[in-house]
Amino acid sequence: MRKMSSVLLAIVLVLSVAAMGFAQKKPLIAFSQCTMNHPWRIAMTNDVVYWAEKLGVDLIWNDGEGDAAVQLTKVRDLLLQNPDALIISPFQATALDPVKQLCDEKGIPLVCIDRSIDSEPGTDMYISFIGKDNTKISKELGEFVAEYLNEINGEYKGNIVEIQEAVGSSATIERYNGFREAIEQHPDINIIATQSGHGYRVEGTKVMENYLERFPKGTIDIVYTHSDEMGLGALQAIKAAGRTELIGRLVTIDGQRAAIKTVVDGEHLGIADYAPYFGEAAIKSILDYLEGKPVEAVQMLDSNLYHMVTPEGKNFTENYYNRMLAEDLFY
């Protein structure tokens, strides 16, 4: 009888310990970043890492090295570890679309951040796309530019040169189209040149140098770049060429601290905010999904416009810049 009790007690103990271990197992989330060769991407990865630790999940991640084929291969590596969910920021929409099929086959929930893939979010295992509305943001920036040109020229008139993000990404297409939606309302405002700077500062400088050679003083009114990094590169080219008429005529998207400083200093006309902070929303969505709660298929995060043109804009921008200094924020 005593032996029987001991065996039962041992079984109960073993089961309890096993249950405790099972209950304490943290979800494992995999994250595929398309490239780490850009401060915006580094800040995004840091944010995902931060929220993983903050929300108590284990995270594995790797870098797609700015190449869709490499990223797809690295996604396969991540899926081999059987994560509970996959977060991806795809390099290109079409080339990374097979990721959905891989997740469907393995039953792994998929969340896309910043950029989507071709498949529709909310179908099968592609549970959510979390981004900012690039079309809306760039349209608002276009409207801001049109109003600014009207203010300085007395009419909606002027020439714009554009430097695009990486060719083929959903962000590039949306930032290209959204800006034009606003500009095309004014027939005398023309986008006289557009070229890709591939998202990098050095490329932004090269493209701008080319524009400055092609278009003499007085023929460019606004420089629009799809990202701050390329904008800061373009600003370098403008300063090096002594084209002072273009200082304070640059508009960009993103909102990194160095660029916000140039707005405060009057070298940059305006920035539409597209900060890379998706980690909280992505991981919370996955945790909700794993708990059986509903998750919105498309989640659009808020955005701001930083400029010094109006007193309200000046106050808002200066205050935000000081907050970045106080809290040591990069975006």
Binding site: N315, F316, E318, N319, Y320, N322, R323, L325, A326
Partner: peptide, 15 residues
């Protein structure tokens, strides 16, 4: 006056 917008500037100044 301007305290709301100066909030972070004051933090930066006194930190």
């Amino acid at each position: 006056e301007d305290l709301e917008t100066n909030y972070y500037a004051l933090i930066v100044e006194w930190t």
